[in-house]
């Protein structure tokens, strides 16, 4: 699993380059996210366009990253394929846990308007 990070309007956009976000790669993803957060990146958009398969370990690594933020920022997701979107719906993580956006542009614009994280 590789990641591409860039900053847009004060928002960190992380694009996942692998097709699978599963138990085999979740620890690497979690480590990457913790590193970003500890370096002050508090508003993060995850671009999941390339991800075709996600399991509960992938979801757990997202939730762990959210907990690492501790309420002083936000992680939003965008560009979900059908399978991943259904997974968020089945596990009810689309109900106020993660904001889901159709495009990176929309996600960045929304998070950029959010109050600065402490």
């Amino acid at each position: 699993m590789e990641f591409e990070d860039r900053i847009e309007g004060g928002v960190t956009v992380v694009s996942l380059k692998g097709q699978r976000m599963d138990a085999a790669v979740a620890p690497l993803f979690k480590s990457h996210m913790v590193d970003l957060i500890q370096h002050g990146n508090k508003r993060i958009v995850l671009n999941l366009e390339a991800v075709d398969f996600m399991d509960s370990s992938g979801l757990a690594s997202l939730m762990s990253s959210m907990k690492t933020l501790g309420g002083s920022g936000e992680i939003a997701v965008c560009c979900l394929g059908d399978k991943v979107r259904k997974l968020f719906a089945i596990t009810r993580l689309d109900r106020g846990v993660f904001r889901i956006f159709g495009t990176t542009t929309e996600a960045v614009a929304t998070l950029a308007e959010a109050p600065a994280a402490e």
Binding site: S56, L59, A60, R92, G96
Partner: peptide, 23 residues
């Protein structure tokens, strides 16, 4: 079952795998 998380603390740490299997 999985509850709808109302706060950060409510986010499930595990158990989602078996829930997805049952689903």
């Amino acid at each position: 079952d999985l509850a709808v998380a109302r706060s950060l603390e409510d986010l499930p740490e595990g158990g989602m795998g078996l829930f997805l299997i049952r689903n």
